[in-house]
Design a protein around this nucleic acid. Structure first.
Length: 283
DNA sequence: CACCATGTTCCTTG
DNA sequence: CCAAGGAACATGGT
């Protein structure tokens, strides 16, 4: 479910639900998702701690916690992988088939479920250190962007997925931003013109910003039972009917380009699908 | 059965 | 040493 907008919307929901809550017990049902922590270490560290704040960096969630008898806070790192979901539900609610970690709270329980178990919930923060500037942050400027792109010969679409370049862009919005900027996904990063860089910088922020605004309007079902609990990830979610219709090229192979009616094309780059209009994106 | 899937990390290749 | 490409991870949908 996760690219920057989906994570941002989730963080906005989780903040108010978790702030002030105390963790009474930790249940790890799939230890892979807490690596390199061990279930015992995680439980020992989290039990008794209280949630202070929930933040986001790139596609990562940061849970600031404070231990029982200490001012010295620490941070728990979350990532949704491809299929992860996180929500708070009533304490006695049934757990989903792929519940990976459950945090029993003083009121309700926090559930991290993940069908494919690519996600993470860990005290190891090393992956966050490698992130580049926030896509929607002030540090991400056209100048910075240009300087970084100049050093790579990779196709621009592939480069956009590099989280050390810009944090938060994923496979869907990379295709969408390139389409809006009229740039070919195959163009080498170091061959973009200044104008193209400025446009791409703008369309990236536009696409991510619009998605956050859209996702923010959707309700959240805290029971966690319904397939779409207000998380508007691609392809499902109640209330997100037509979400894929908001995407202009992603997963629209063979359909008419919204600008020129040329059939949208699907290609594979670095083992991932890219969608684009061969007519509108020639630059 | 075949192929596809919103992501990250690790290993190999050049 | 570095950049780039590909596979692995794990499960389910079509």
């Amino acid at each position: 479910m996760p690219e920057l907008p989906e994570v941002e919307v989730l963080v906005r929901h989780l903040g108010p639900a978790l702030r002030g809550r105390r963790i009474k017990a930790v249940e790890v049902r799939r230890s892979r998702v807490i690596e390199p922590d061990s279930p015992a270490d995680l439980a020992e560290r989290l039990t008794g701690a209280r949630f202070r704040e929930v933040r986001r960096q790139g596609k990562f969630l940061l849970f600031d916690l404070r231990p029982v008898h200490s001012r010295l806070g620490f941070t728990l790192l979350g990532h949704l992988g491809m299929t992860g979901r996180m929500y708070v539900q009533p304490a006695r609610a049934a757990l989903p088939k792929h519940a990976a970690v459950v945090l029993r709270l003083d009121r309700g329980q926090f559930v991290f479920e993940d069908t494919r178990y690519f996600g993470r919930l860990t005290l190891d923060l090393s992956s966050v250190a490698a992130l580049g500037p926030e896509a929607l942050g002030a540090e991400f400027t056209p100048d910075q962007f240009a300087a970084d792109l100049k050093r790579s010969a990779q196709p621009i679409k592939v480069k956009l997925l590099d989280q050390s370049l810009v944090a938060g862009v994923g496979n869907i919005y990379a295709s969408e931003a390139l389409f809006r900027a009229g740039i070919s996904p195959k163009r080498r990063a170091n061959r973009l013109t200044r104008n193209q860089i400025v446009r791409l910088h703008a369309t990236l922020r536009e696409v991510l910003g619009e998605a956050i605004r859209y996702g923010s309007t959707l309700p959240l079902d805290w029971s966690g039972r319904r397939k779409g609990d207000g998380l508007f990830y691609y392809g499902s979610a109640d209330g997100a009917v037509g979400y894929d219709e908001r995407l202009r090229v992603y997963d629209h192979a063979g359909e008419a380009c919204p600008k020129c009616a040329t059939p949208i094309r699907r290609i594979v780059q670095a083992t991932r699908s890219t969608f684009y209009c061969p007519q509108c994106q020639r630059g």
